Simulated assay, not measured.
Amino acid sequence: MKYLITGFIRFVTAIDWPMMLILLVLASTGMLVMHSAVGGTDWRFADQLRNFLVALTAMWVVALIPQPVFMKFALPCYLLGVALLIAVMLFGDTSKGATRWLNIGVARIQPSEMMKIAMPLMLAWYFQVRDGSMRFFDFIAAILLLLIPFVLIVKQPDLGTAILVLGAGAFVIYFAGLSFKLLIPLAVCAVISVTAVVSYQDVLCKSDFDWIVLRDYQKHRICTLLDPTTDPLGKGFHTIQSTIAVGSGGVFGKGYMKGTQTHLDFIPERTTDFIFAVFAEEFGMYGGVTLLLIYGLLIARGLTIAVRAQTQFGRLLAGALTMVLFIYVFVNVGMVTGILPVVGVPLPLMSYGGTALVTIGVACGMLMSINRYRPVKK
């Protein structure tokens, strides 16, 4: 009985209950929308429920781990992740034109998912070690550490995961003290590039024009975003149908289980990348805005934990993991509403899939561990 009471107390104190409440609201909403998207309680609904239980368990286990343990395993996790990415490049399984999986005998794993956690973990540890003796060279070294897995993931190709890994590492570097002035040239280059693509899309989007830095399918995604009607039944189908679904929901929505775009199978990938279109069609603008506000509360809680963290490592890691959640939401909603290219980024705690849910569960568990950690004063 004593051990049961002790274990229960550890469980209660490990959980950050404000964050847990937000996660439960999002998870419940996700299951509600999944029920509508699949039209009942078929195997996908049951699988998603199981995925949530696995993610919740992973979150609780990670929340119980003391922060110093994360620091201890930061470098080994990063090296293992890079080694697995190289193994994928050399021996990986190819599916639908992408080499992203590694067969280890008992299962197929996707090492790029691991880097979403290992990358910010590594850079937070690096800047913790360099704290107090920071030089400009340290930022250059951190950028190189970030570019290695980013390039390996882009080559698979997996642009969506590469963006998330790049964003996670970039936020750590920025939070560590990189001058905002150094980001101005990058912002200027981005504005010029977007302006050039929009202004000269007729030339740049011709089939025989080679973008060099992007693969053909990535080029087509950008060109389709600019004008989906150029291929309405092909590459533009996803964007056109999702924006129709979002717009047809109007202000109040069509009602639960009454989305015509959803139940007539017009929304592609409606249980995964485009589940927000299902939600927006059935619950309308008010429902969509409310959902975004709930995500805003989750991000605000994560940033609060980052501000209150007791160590440099904790602040950097919590800030980066929180901003990764922001990137998830921003990119997914952006591509569903037609303002960003389709890159295959799921909506946190809503989209079907076990790997992404477990990754988010681990990230939230780390945030809870950071919030609970108090260093022992010597």
Rank of each mutant, 00 (worst) to 15 (best):
D231W: 00
F283M: 10
A245Y: 07
T262R: 07
D227L: 06
C223I: 01
L292H: 04
T243N: 06
T260E: 13
E281M: 11
M285D: 03
D265P: 01
I294T: 12
M257L: 15
L264Q: 12
A245R: 09
F252M: 13
I267N: 01
I240A: 15
T262E: 08
G296A: 14
C205N: 07
Y286V: 12
L204H: 06
R270C: 03
S207A: 13
V213P: 03
Q261P: 00
G249Y: 06
I212T: 14
C223V: 02
C205R: 00
L233C: 04
V251K: 10
I240Q: 11
G287D: 00
L233T: 06
R301A: 03
I244H: 08
T262Q: 03
F266Y: 12
T260F: 11
M257A: 15
G250M: 14
E282G: 05
L225R: 03
T290W: 14
G288D: 00
T290E: 08
F237H: 11
R301Q: 15
R221L: 05
H263K: 07
V246Y: 07
E281S: 02
K219R: 09
R270F: 08
H263G: 05
C205M: 02
D227A: 13
F252P: 03
H263A: 11
C223A: 03
G250E: 11
F237M: 14
P232T: 12
R270K: 15
I240M: 15
A245W: 03
Y256V: 11
T224L: 04
I244R: 01
G249E: 05
H220L: 10
T290C: 15
D210W: 00
S207Y: 04
D227V: 06
W211D: 09
G287F: 08
L233V: 05
K206V: 07
G249K: 09
I267T: 09
V278E: 00
K219F: 04
G247L: 14
P268T: 02
E282C: 03
Y286D: 00
K254I: 09
Y217M: 04
R215P: 02
D231N: 11
R215D: 10
T262L: 10
Q241D: 13
V251T: 14
T243D: 08
V278T: 07
L297I: 15
I212G: 07
Q241F: 07
P232I: 10
T272A: 15
I275W: 00
